[in-house]
Amino acid sequence: MTSNSRRPGRAWIITPGLHTDRFASAQKAGAAVAVVDVEDSVALPDKQAARTASEAFFALPDPPCTLGIRMNGLTTIEGIKDLVALTAYTARPDLIVVPKVEASRDIELVAAALDADGYTPDIWALIESPRAFDTLPEIMRAPRLGGVIFGSADYAASVRCGLGWDALRYARSALINAATAANVPAIDAPTWELDDPDALRRDAERAKELGFYGKGCVHPRHVQVINDVFMPTAEEIAQARAMVAAADASGGSVTTVDGQMRGTPFFNRARTLVAEADRAS
Rank of each mutant, 00 (worst) to 15 (best):
N4Y: 11
R7H: 11
A11Y: 05
W12C: 05
G17K: 08
L18P: 07
T20I: 12
D21N: 14
R22I: 09
F23R: 08
F23I: 12
A24F: 15
A29P: 13
G30K: 13
A31F: 03
A34V: 15
V35Y: 11
V35I: 15
V36T: 13
D37P: 14
L44R: 14
Q48N: 14
R51D: 12
T52V: 15
T52F: 14
A53W: 07
T66G: 05
M71T: 10
N72K: 05
G73D: 06
G73K: 01
I77P: 04
G79K: 06
G79S: 03
I80L: 14
K81W: 03
D82Y: 00
L83D: 03
L83G: 05
L86Q: 09
L86K: 09
A88H: 14
A88N: 14
A91H: 14
L95A: 01
K100Y: 09
K100I: 04
A103Y: 05
A103P: 02
R105P: 08
D106W: 03
A111Y: 00
A113F: 04
A113V: 08
D115G: 00
D115R: 02
A116F: 09
Y119F: 13
Y119L: 11
P121H: 08
D122L: 14
I123H: 05
A125K: 01
A125L: 02
L126V: 11
P130H: 07
R131L: 15
L136F: 03
E138Q: 12
I139N: 05
M140H: 00
R141Y: 11
P143I: 02
P143F: 06
R144C: 04
L145F: 07
G147V: 00
V148L: 11
F150D: 13
A153F: 14
A156P: 09
A156L: 10
A157G: 06
G162H: 02
G164W: 02
W165R: 14
A167C: 02
Y170A: 10
Y170K: 10
R172D: 03
R172M: 05
I176D: 00
N177D: 05
T180V: 05
A181I: 02
A181R: 06
N183H: 05
V184H: 01
P185V: 12
A186N: 01
A189R: 00
T191R: 10
L194S: 08
D196P: 03
D196K: 04
D198G: 15
D198A: 15
R201C: 10
D203P: 11
D203A: 15
R206I: 03
A207T: 06
G214S: 08
G216R: 02
C217P: 03
V218H: 07
V218Q: 01
H219K: 10
P220S: 04
V223S: 09
V225M: 08
N227K: 08
D228C: 07
D228A: 11
V229F: 10
P232F: 12
A234C: 00
E235T: 15
I237F: 10
I237M: 10
A242C: 09
A245D: 12
A246R: 07
A246H: 04
D248W: 08
G251A: 13
S253E: 15
T256W: 06
D258H: 10
Q260V: 13
R262S: 09
T264Y: 09
F267G: 01
F267R: 00
A275D: 04
E276I: 04
A277K: 07
A280Y: 02
A280M: 00
